[in-house]
């Protein structure tokens, strides 16, 4: 398989291209995704290649984009809608929670809703309150949804392809801070990364750091710079989360730090923490600590104070290491 150096935007674009070439049921729809190629250029060039019937520049209506995609999926297509910023998804939440997530259940399995809803999320591009949110918990709390978030170009493409090949709706959260943050060798053809499996990014004995999405590179930088002997788990999929990978690591280290960018209260870290204590409190030598965004909106000028950084991650790691 030939590969190419790609950033995350290019990898996603390549994944969409592969999917569309292989399957005419794949339809893209969203705001400015056609002629403009998407505000982040993820769908660049696909209109020219696949035509306006398969790459739809829609009116500005999130509830309509999602609702229309659901109708397409129910009638046998495989839509991949884009919501321009995750912050704008909330008018479509009724469609996501009450339609998309419940089609299979409420129809006794007669109807299905296989689709991938892509949307960029997270801070780091100076977007302020309305272009920076991390709302993964809203989706994780709804039965019927699969929630995926990649942390590298390679993962982004492989997870997107898996998500699109599944039989259920997937919320695909793209960490926009990483869109152009780094390049990687990425296969040009189709390949899959399994949904529901975490990746052990680095192996160590002293502490388990559990993270996902845009925080993965920040955690890895911290670990490398400070020579931490840590297991670093990139969850990749939040729902269904990979409990086996988590428990295996916790059993080994007995010390856990969870890092995510979303606010702490009701955040996904709380779920992981509860899961670990329910299953293995006896393995723990220290309280589980969370390093998260604060329970505030995301500021524009002072963004760097919001997003978890090396200092805060290191503090938490030291604390759990110091516990008896």
């Amino acid at each position: 398989m030939t590969s190419k150096t790609m950033n995350m935007v290019q990898a996603l674009n390549s994944g969409l291209d592969n999917l569309m070439a292989a399957d005419d049921r794949i339809i893209l729809l969203g705001e400015d995704i056609g002629t403009d190629g998407g505000v982040f250029r993820v769908t660049d060039g696909l209109l020219a290649k696949y035509g306006a019937e398969r790459v739809l520049d829609t009116p500005l209506v999130e509830v309509g984009i999602v609702g229309m995609a659901i109708g397409m999926a129910v009638q046998g297509l495989r839509p991949i809608p884009e919501i321009q910023f995750q912050d704008f998804i909330y008018t479509a939440m009724d469609q996501i929670i009450n339609q998309m997530a419940k089609i299979r259940y409420r129809s006794g399995g007669e109807y299905e809703c296989p689709m991938v809803l892509r949307t960029p999320y997270g801070a780091g591009v100076k977007g302020g309150l309305y272009h920076s949110q991390s709302g993964e918990s809203y989706f994780a709390h709804t039965a019927g949804l699969t929630v995926v978030t990649p942390s590298s170009p390679y993962d982004a493409k492989g997870l997107l392809i898996s998500a699109s090949k599944g039989e259920d709706p997937v919320i695909f959260l793209e960490p926009k801070r990483l869109y152009r943050a780094g390049k990687q060798e990425v296969p040009e053809d189709i390949y899959k990364i399994p949904i529901g499996k975490a990746e052990l990014v680095q192996s160590g004995d002293d502490v388990t750091i559990i993270t996902y999405g845009a925080m993965v590179p920040t955690v890895m930088d911290t670990v490398k710079k400070n020579n931490l002997n840590a297991d670093v788990l990139d969850l990749r999929t939040l729902v269904p989360v990979d409990k086996d990978a988590i428990m295996l690591s916790v059993q080994k280290t007995g010390r856990v730090v969870i890092v995510h960018e979303a606010p702490r209260t009701g955040g996904f870290g709380g779920e992981i923490s509860a899961m670990i204590t329910e299953r293995g409190i006896d393995f723990l030598y220290a309280p589980i600590l969370r390093v998260t965004g604060p329970d505030s909106p995301i500021p524009y000028r002072m963004e760097e104070y919001y997003v978890p950084n090396e200092r805060r991650i290191l503090n938490a790691v030291r604390k759990v290491l110091e516990s008896a």
Binding site: I70, G71, M72, N98, Q99, S107, Y111
Partner: peptide, 28 residues
């Protein structure tokens, strides 16, 4: 629900079937 007679399963929230109908019509 009756897929055999092409009757989409019904939701409670009012009117949220309309965007779906647009998607279904697009598929046709």
């Amino acid at each position: 629900t009756s897929k055999a007679l092409h009757f989409m399963s019904v939701q409670s929230p009012v009117a949220s079937n309309l965007p779906l109908a647009a998607g279904a019509a697009y598929a046709l």
